[in-house]
Computed example of a mutant assay.
Amino acid sequence: MASPSTSTSSTTITRKRFKTQSEEALKPSFSDLPSSLLEVIMSRLVLKDNIIASASCKSWCEAAISVRVVEKHPWLLSFSKRSSLFELHDPVQSKSYTLNPPELAESTVRYSSHSWLLMHASTTKDLFFFNPFTRELISLPKSTLPFQAIAFSSPPTSDNCVVVALNFMLRHHYVTISTCHPGATEWITEAFPAALLYYMKSKLVYLNDRFYCFTFGGDSLYSFHPSSRTWVCHEDVYHYHQLQGGWERREAFLAEKKGELFLVFTCGKEKPVVFKQGYLRWEKMSSTEPDGFTIFFSSYHSQMRTNLPWMRNNLCSLRFGNKRMRCLSYSFDKSRYNPHKGSLSWLELVPRPKCLWIDPPDNVLDYLG
Score class of each variant (00 low, 15 high):
L38Q: 05
M119L: 12
I13F: 01
S112T: 11
K257H: 14
S29I: 10
W310E: 11
T108N: 15
H225P: 00
K354L: 05
S220M: 00
I358G: 03
C61A: 00
Y222M: 04
R352A: 07
W310S: 15
D126M: 14
R319E: 10
R110K: 08
E289W: 04
H120R: 14
P272F: 07
L263D: 01
K269A: 06
T230G: 07
A151F: 03
I177Y: 09
V109G: 01
S83Y: 06
A105W: 06
A64L: 02
S113H: 05
L368M: 15
F296E: 04
H225F: 04
E186Q: 10
P146K: 08
F214E: 04
R250W: 10
K48G: 03
K48Y: 10
V164R: 09
E23S: 13
S96D: 09
V175C: 15
S343I: 06
F168G: 00
N160E: 06
G259F: 13
E289F: 03
R352I: 09
P353L: 09
T108W: 02
D359V: 09
N314K: 14
T266F: 01
H241Y: 09
C161H: 01
T14G: 02
F130L: 08
A195Y: 08
W231L: 04
M311Y: 06
W116G: 02
T12H: 12
E289I: 01
I13C: 00
K27W: 03
T20A: 13
S178L: 07
N160M: 06
V46I: 13
F265R: 00
P182Y: 05
K203E: 15
C233T: 07
L197G: 00
L328V: 13
P4I: 05
S115V: 01
K81H: 06
R352W: 03
V40C: 08
V109R: 08
R324M: 02
G218C: 08
E256S: 15
Q303N: 02
S287Q: 13
V70K: 14
S43K: 10
V70Y: 04
